[in-house]
C-alpha cells in the first residue's frame, strides 16, 4: 500500500526542503518508486536540490491547479540527478511549483480549489505507481497544510531547538490531532554543537509524547552543499546520511 508523508514545520527555515529531498532520495536509492510534490506554492525551492532548472519545467503544480494539464504531466523524473541508473528499480519524480513571479502572483490572487490537491496526489500515486509520496509544504498553517496533514499516513514535523519552534510545534500537533493524523514523527534539525542530542531527544519526546525520528546537527557540510544536490547522495557514509536511513526505517514501522 502506498504511503503519503507530509513534511511540515510551523516556521520557515527549519530545513524542510532539504530534509524532504534527502529522505526521498534515501528511499528511492533503496529501490522504491518515490514522488515529491512541492506544495510550497508561495516560495518553492526543492527543485534546486534535484538540479531541475526552472527553464526545463514548463509544466508545474500551478498549471495542474489551473486545470491546464493533468498532474502526471508535471511530474519530472529526476532519478538520474540523484545517481539512479535507468535500470535501477528505484525512481524519483518531482512535481515542482512554478518559480515565475507571475504564476505565484496568480495563485495567490485567485486561490485554487484545495480539493484538487487531494485528487491530484491520488492520481499521481496511481498513475506513477508510487510506493511513497512526499509532500513538501509551506511553513505555518493554511488550508493546504491542513489538507496535506489530513491525507498523510505519516506526518513529519521538523523543529529547531528554540522556543518559537517549540510553541509552534505544539500548535501544529493540536491541529494534527484534530485532523486525526495516523502517525506523527518529529525531527529536530540544526542542533548546535553544545547540545547533547540524546538528552534533547528524550526531553522533546517527553514534552510532546511523540517519537523523535532523528536529530540532525547544524552542519556546515550540509550548508556547503547548500541548495545544490542532495547530501546523502554525495556522502552516503556520513553520519547524517545514516540518520536519514534511520528516519526512513521509522516511516515504515507500524
Amino acid at each position: 500500500m502506498p504511503k503519503v508523508i507530509s513534511i511540515h514545520s510551523y516556521r520557515g527555515g527549519t530545513g524542510k526542503s532539504n530534509f524532504t529531498a534527502n529522505i526521498a532520495a534515501t528511499i528511492a536509492l533503496q529501490g522504491k518508486r518515490v514522488g515529491v510534490v512541492d506544495t510550497d506554492v508561495p516560495s518553492p525551492g526543492i527543485h534546486n536540490l534535484f538540479c531541475l532548472e526552472p527553464e526545463q519545467t514548463t509544466h508545474t503544480l500551478n498549471s495542474y491547479l489551473w486545470g491546464e494539464i493533468s498532474i502526471e504531466e508535471a511530474a519530472y523524473d529526476v532519478s538520474r540527478n540523484i545517481g539512479l541508473s535507468d535500470d535501477a528499480g528505484g525512481r524519483l519524480y518531482l512535481v515542482p511549483s512554478s518559480v515565475k513571479a507571475d504564476s505565484i502572483a496568480r495563485i495567490l490572487r485567485d486561490g485554487y480549489d484545495v480539493r484538487l490537491m487531494n485528487d491530484g496526489f491520488r492520481k499521481l500515486v496511481k498513475s506513477l505507481q508510487l510506493d511513497y509520496l512526499f509532500i513538501d509544504t509551506h511553513p505555518g498553517l493554511s488550508k493546504e497544510t491542513f489538507l496535506s496533514i489530513a491525507i498523510s499516513h505519516v506526518l513529519i514535523l521538523i523543529l529547531r531547538p528554540d522556543k518559537q519552534d517549540y510553541q509552534g510545534t505544539a500548535v501544529t500537533m493540536d491541529v494534527a490531532k484534530q485532523l486525526k493524523v495516523r502517525k506523527l514523527l518529529l525531527a529536530i534539525n540544526k542542533v548546535y554543537g553544545q547540545l547533547n542530542p540524546d538528552a534533547l531527544k528524550q526531553k522533546v519526546e517527553e514534552t510532546y509524547g511523540e517519537k523523535v525520528a532523528g536529530v540532525f546537527p547544524l552542519s556546515e557540510e550540509v550548508v556547503q552543499l547548500a541548495s545544490e544536490g542532495v547530501f546523502c547522495v554525495r556522502y552516503p557514509e556520513h553520519p547524517i546520511s545514516q540518520t536519514f536511513r534511520q528516519v526512513a526505517a521509522q516511516i515504515d514501522q507500524g
Binding site: K163, Q164, Q167
Partner: peptide, 23 residues
Amino acid sequence: AGADREKLDQTPNQAADQAADQS
C-alpha cells in the same frame, strides 16, 4: 547558543503548554 541551552530545561514544556492553553 549557550544561552538557549540554559533555557532548554524549561523551554519545550512551557512553550508547548502555552500553546495548548490557547487552543
